[in-house]
Simulated assay, not measured.
Amino acid sequence: MTEQEFFTYKGLPLVRKDNTIYYGNMSDKYVAMLTVLSTHKVKDLEIADKTRVQLMSTDPKTPATEIIAKTSERGSLYEALDVASIWLSKNN
Rank of each mutant, 00 (worst) to 15 (best):
E3N: 09
N25Q: 12
E5W: 07
V83M: 05
E5L: 14
Y78H: 12
M56N: 10
D44W: 10
V42G: 07
D44Y: 13
R16T: 13
T35H: 08
V83A: 05
T35Q: 09
L37E: 15
S57C: 05
A80R: 03
Q54T: 05
K17Q: 14
Y22R: 10
G24R: 01
D28A: 10
L55W: 00
E66P: 01
D28F: 06
T51S: 06
S76Y: 03
K41L: 11
S72Q: 10
T51K: 05
F7R: 15
D49V: 03
G11Q: 04
D44H: 12
L34E: 01
K10V: 04
K17S: 15
P60E: 06
T35G: 03
L12P: 03
E3M: 08
Q4C: 12
K61G: 06
K41R: 14
K61T: 10
V83T: 11
T35P: 06
P13V: 01
E3I: 10
T51N: 05
I67T: 07
T58Q: 13
Y22I: 08
L12V: 02
A80W: 07
N19Q: 12
I47S: 04
L34V: 02
R52M: 14
N91P: 05
D49P: 06
V36E: 10
G75T: 08
V83W: 04
T39K: 10
Q54H: 00
K70T: 06
I67H: 01
T35N: 10
K17A: 15
T51E: 03
K41Q: 09
S57M: 03
Y30E: 15
L34M: 03
P13W: 00
H40W: 06
S38L: 05
V53W: 01
E73C: 01
T58G: 12
